[in-house]
């Protein structure tokens, strides 16, 4: 039997891997990938809770994920545009070098 816990654990693993990518990779694109993964994990959680939730007829989880995917798409578009701009400016996408605004 596939339980809620299984999905939650998969989602947690997905989230942890995304977090690891954000924390360890020295590449802005990889960080963006990590963020997308973490977002996907959250979406998976929403869907899983909706599926095993008390009132599936309200379709709240599905609708939320729908909006979330739209926001994630917009976020990816803007983030990648930013990365392109940064790359043009610095000739690098190493986040350690983006420190002009750093105190």
């Amino acid at each position: 039997m596939i339980t809620l816990e299984s999905f939650l654990l998969v989602s947690a693993l997905l989230f942890a891997l995304g977090l690891a990518a954000v924390l360890t990779r020295r590449n802005a694109i990889m960080i963006l990938i990590g963020i997308e993964l973490m977002l996907s994990a959250a979406n998976l959680n929403f869907v899983a809770f909706w599926r095993f939730g008390a009132n599936p007829e309200a379709l709240t989880g599905v609708l939320f994920v729908l909006f979330s995917i739209a926001v994630a798409a917009a976020e990816a578009a803007v983030g990648l545009a930013l990365i392109i701009m940064i790359y043009r400016h610095y000739r690098s996408i190493n986040p350690l070098k983006f420190n002009v605004l750093n105190g």
Partner: peptide
Amino acid sequence: AEFLGFIQLLVYVGAVAVLI
């Protein structure tokens, strides 16, 4: 959530991953 699954394929795989 089949609709979501296809949306996911469409948006993430078809758009975001390709963009990346």
